[in-house]
Design a binder for these strands. Sequence first.
DNA 1: TTGTAAGCGTTATCAT
DNA 2: ATGATAACGCTTACAA
Lengths: 345, 345
Amino acid sequence: MAQGRVTIVDVASRAGVSKSAVSFALNGRPGLAEETRQRILDVAREMGWSPSQRGRSLAVSRAFAVGLILARAPELIGSDPFYPSFIAGAEAVLSKSGYSLLLQVLDDPAREADAYHRLATEGRVDGVFLSDMRHGDPRIAMLTELGLPAVTLNRSNISSPFPAVCLDDNAPGITVATRHLIELGHRRIAHVTGPVEFMHAVRRRDAWGAALADAGVPEGPVVVSDFTASGGAAATRELLSLEEPPTAIVYANDLMAMAGMVVAQDLGFPVPQRLSVTGFDDTELAAYVSPALTTVRTSPFAWGQHAAQTLLQFIDAGSAPDVELDSPELVIRTSTARPLEPPLT
Amino acid sequence: MAQGRVTIVDVASRAGVSKSAVSFALNGRPGLAEETRQRILDVAREMGWSPSQRGRSLAVSRAFAVGLILARAPELIGSDPFYPSFIAGAEAVLSKSGYSLLLQVLDDPAREADAYHRLATEGRVDGVFLSDMRHGDPRIAMLTELGLPAVTLNRSNISSPFPAVCLDDNAPGITVATRHLIELGHRRIAHVTGPVEFMHAVRRRDAWGAALADAGVPEGPVVVSDFTASGGAAATRELLSLEEPPTAIVYANDLMAMAGMVVAQDLGFPVPQRLSVTGFDDTELAAYVSPALTTVRTSPFAWGQHAAQTLLQFIDAGSAPDVELDSPELVIRTSTARPLEPPLT
DNA sequence: TTGTAAGCGTTATCAT
DNA sequence: ATGATAACGCTTACAA
């Protein structure tokens, strides 16, 4: 097991210099002969030394870690392709700066406030990512209070002292999906959304509504669901048993859309002949269901990269500009087609 | 923002005792008058003090954190319901002990060794979870070398100094799935597996083979795939274009199974009439595809709990017993049925 | 250009 | 039972 770890003094004595010289060499500070610096670095590598994060942390009052707290039900996270890619993207830039990611998944959302509180008071992280922004999100007040830097993934509806890194914040992805259906000739276009507490749920709903209004198409029915397969199935059943069922449904995510397509076909609404369907996320499976799902492809990896970059800059400099990432693209597959009967005009 | 944090000396002086007294009170050490202890704790709460994790870490040479490194491609992690639940389970016990989880997702598996190395030498974590165990897994030698405690999720095929926490290690889940098909009367049962470097892939393959052998059923064809939807689709196409296509396929995970079912129906093999299909994982969507997928339900949350418990114990005590979790259960839905033609006996 | 010494906030040792 | 005092491993004035 770990015999006496090699520390900075070992390296110093081996290189015949003082501790501070080693520290300077490591951190690329000026005021060291290039030759000495090189020698020190060589010795360090040779001895397999990397500075103890613990000593470092204590000395500079930094944790060299940022946090991500997910308060959704695990099942929901599990079926969301977003997080792993986001985390991979974030990690790519964090690790370059010697930062780590602390992840917390809470099965009980009630413990959320407590979790942020602990992260802050124990000084485990220097900042956090705020995802799944909610209406009047209480976390931004909480974090300002705690003095913990943050970056919000998209915006809440309240003003925030934190930089926002936005991908599809105004849901242009849904706009283009809805337009696609309109162009195909659909006039009864429904929407299945997620819990209204989530900003992205209402933003998608609004984008859908605005796209319809823009085209002078009457607003179809909306069902508020919960982003789960079971929720998507139930919502679809509800929509298709209306007196005038829609000819197309815009779902707020792929999972609900895929479950919805199955329900539709069971109820005698073959997709896309009698019902067109669009999703959101472009999960891998979306291309392999039948019919293949027309959906909106986002790039969570890039989102993670920018979010991490912005967070680090905010931590460092005390401020960082908002970032708007490129709009996601619509991937057109076979779940969308012209409606059977032309609409009455 | 956070003005000068309150430290242990503040509490000490306010309570009129020494630093060590406060430390003793906090950690419930003997050698303190009950009255003093109480007074100290009161003052601490009153001042809103909690000990700095940084100072603590340096003093006791512990990070109070454990690591999880995922070296799969993010897409693959994203479609795997395993990790979020596992992490939630682990977190549930870690946070009770004041531990945190450090997560790293590597898009480039080549950086894996380096990642473990850094985690260890920088002293960021006190131990790690080893998942996705591989054949002759190089990580266990690496970690013994580094002196970093670990817990393996299931076993590798080589001996290990680390405790193993096992769920379905010998793939009884696949055994029961295969038996289920045999009992239905299938005699040409194929298998689609994951990359053979992964222990769980070969264990599942072996379990499938053993179940067939046990029942005196000839071993069907095997296609080595990659746990992705696209891989599952390709494998299925391959199996169904054989001269004697199987009447049932045991897939090593749900994603491949769901993609496979679609391919089968496209190729004129309606499920379950002409082809029975079983999956593995019981993702949420499995119940909402058509036909609903018969699959094996595991409990990653419990796995996470036990793994964390074991890891903490191993870190603390230097040893911990292996744990075998309950076998997963087979969830029978509508993707499996009796084969059309009775087998020739 | 290099070395010395004083923190950072704990815990742990050892007198008192 | 209690209180100095020395680690822990690093950074950073400041002195040489």
